[in-house]
Design a binder for these strands. Structure first.
Lengths: 209, 209
DNA sequence: TAACATATGTAAGCGATGCTAACTTCGACA
DNA sequence: TGTCGAAGTTAGCATCGCTTACATATGTTA
């Protein structure tokens, strides 16, 4: 990996074919390689083979570049969760567990992007922020629909919402603890799929409070 | 902000009373104010009223300063969890829920430090790293002992371990989703204590797989 | 009390960063 | 063909993390 995949521009040409897309891809790769906070615009420029001023024709700030990667990641996660859930009967424990497993798998495969997606400290309430909120809600909706199907209730039923949030919370914590290596601390090998399955079952079928 | 709490040194004296401790405190304050990744050594120096080179008599790198804050945070969390658990009968749902609530409360009160504590990307396996691992395990041990007491089993029993990890995972996810503002997305007010309690109960008393 | 060793501070400077301003190149369209 | 705007460039600012060389205060020893 050492060899960062240099993204070539059309050789010799002054103007770049599709610099914006290539910068987003470079940003994604660097976020994955060094983590969101260590990402630098200058490195992305080197990857794309342009000067350090070039990105500012396409993005207002460094944060804008990161936001683009965040958005793309959220969209990928949304489709992935939906695909995984669709492989099993609606409302089944298998469907819920598979969705959760896909969530964790995403975090494991792309920890940098995952971290980026779920740690926006700036609450700017920009239109961009709104877009991302919607994308996040779409992801949550996949789980919510499963719970609703199992209970035979509405998607916005309070008990459905509570259980949905418990499930989301669980896989979210599982994702972070996994990518931060907190589980490797213990010697005993933990069977994560099994743990996820049993927890999903316990939460899904808990007697209502 | 403006008025960041300037930490005065003994006025007029060349030598600083206890610069190391004051730098740690300044680091903690800045991490809390701007987030771990936006912390800068120079700002901490300004807060403590010394030159930008002074910290390097006490810390090797910027990361060392952050590590000091991390360690102090882990110790504070450990005692806090233990205190909270001790207020209820060992192995009771109340004890488990109270411990979890304390975990989330810490995250809410000090999101910067909390984020710092649980996102060490560098796996250096330094002696420092080992210390922090132990501190983290101590925190987990508080929960583990509660589950063990409830089940009347050993702390290292596999089923105890699995449930303990599920509980930890849940509150960890709850903490992150809370400080990242993902819950405020929905209009419906979520009763977090109740949700935490019911989830703890469901996981604690789930029929063994 | 004098002098030295040590701990702890300062000043100056290196390379890299995010970002801006002013200039240059190139392609699209009249 | 001529011109205009989009999309690059170079040059430069302020700040950053960190290092090196030097200055000052303090405690121990004689």
């Amino acid at each position: 990996m050492s060899a960062a995949p240099k993204i070539a521009k059309k050789s010799g040409s002054y103007h770049h074919g599709d610099l914006k897309a290539q910068l987003v891809e470079a940003t994604r790769a660097l976020v994955e390689e060094h983590g969101p906070d260590r990402f630098s615009v200058a490195q992305a420029c080197r990857l794309a083979g342009v000067s350090t001023a070039a990105p500012y024709r396409h993005f207002e700030t460094r944060q804008d570049m990161l936001d683009a990667v965040t958005e793309e990641g959220l969209m990928r996660m949304r489709t992935r969760l939906a695909e995984e859930a669709a492989k099993h009967p609606p409302g089944s424990v298998e469907a819920v567990a598979a969705t959760g497993a896909a969530y964790v798998a995403f975090a494991q495969e792309e920890p940098g992007v995952f971290r980026l997606m779920f740690s926006m400290e700036g609450e700017e309430s920009s239109p961009r922020e709104a877009e991302m909120r919607v994308l996040g809600l779409d992801c949550f909706g996949v789980v919510l629909d499963q719970v609703a199907a199992r209970r035979g209730k509405d998607r916005f039923d309070p008990s459905v919402l509570e259980t949905g949030m418990q499930l989301w919370t669980l896989v979210h914590g599982l994702s972070f603890l996994t990518i931060d290596g907190k589980f490797s601390v213990m010697e005993l090998p933990v069977d994560m799929p099994k743990m996820l399955m049993s927890a999903s079952l316990a939460l899904l079928d808990a007697r209502p409070s």
